[in-house]
């Protein structure tokens, strides 16, 4: 007598196939991660961020004391000491809001050519106040047009009320 094949086996094979597809997606994710987060890029360079200050957009200046949190209706900007980075290093500085959107940027350019003024956070289109949450400011080293290393990082809280 020939034993009847288990009728659940096609389902088992199907779920295994789906598992293999999942592994392929993870592999693609790892490739993506490594291409945007390339290993072996650490140079040990550290950029000095003087601080994050209240920003006056009318005369494009930052003032007051360095702070870590701001109200929603308070513009703010970061000040970077570009001389703390080797002059030929290509760098950029960017602000990200709590949704991960770029809301301010200077560069990329060699550190010696970076503008010395404050780097402000721009209001998203259609809004009169900043979005609340954690804002991220980074100074990045650029290689072949792509950020490869964070030279300085600041987290700023925009209050919800």
């Amino acid at each position: 007598m020939i034993a009847r094949p288990d009728e659940i086996l096609p389902l088992y094979r199907a779920i295994k196939l789906v598992g293999i597809l999942a592994m392929a997606i993870f592999a693609a994710g790892i490739v993506e991660f490594l291409s945007f987060e390339p290993p072996g890029q650490a140079t040990g360079t550290v950029a000095r961020v003087a601080g994050v200050y209240a920003y006056d957009s009318s005369n494009r200046s930052a003032g007051g004391t360095a702070r870590e949190s701001f109200r929603r209706d308070e513009p703010f900007a970061a000040v970077v000491d570009w001389s703390s980075i080797p002059a030929g290093t290509v760098v950029a500085a960017r602000w990200f809001d709590s949704f991960g959107e770029v809301v301010g940027q200077v560069g990329p350019a060699p550190a010696a050519a970076m503008p010395p003024g404050p780097i402000p956070v721009a209001l998203p289109a259609g809004l009169r106040r900043n979005i609340p949450g954690t804002y991220l400011f980074v100074v990045e080293r650029i290689s072949h047009g792509q950020p490869v290393e964070v030279l300085a990082r600041r987290l700023i809280e925009v209050e919800r009320t």
Binding site: E32, F33, F36, E37, G100, L136, P147, V148, V150, L155
Partner: peptide
Amino acid sequence: SVHVLLPGPGLDASNAF
């Protein structure tokens, strides 16, 4: 991740994972 990784697609991928 926000203290360690580069902001951008790499960070997005790690948060998505």
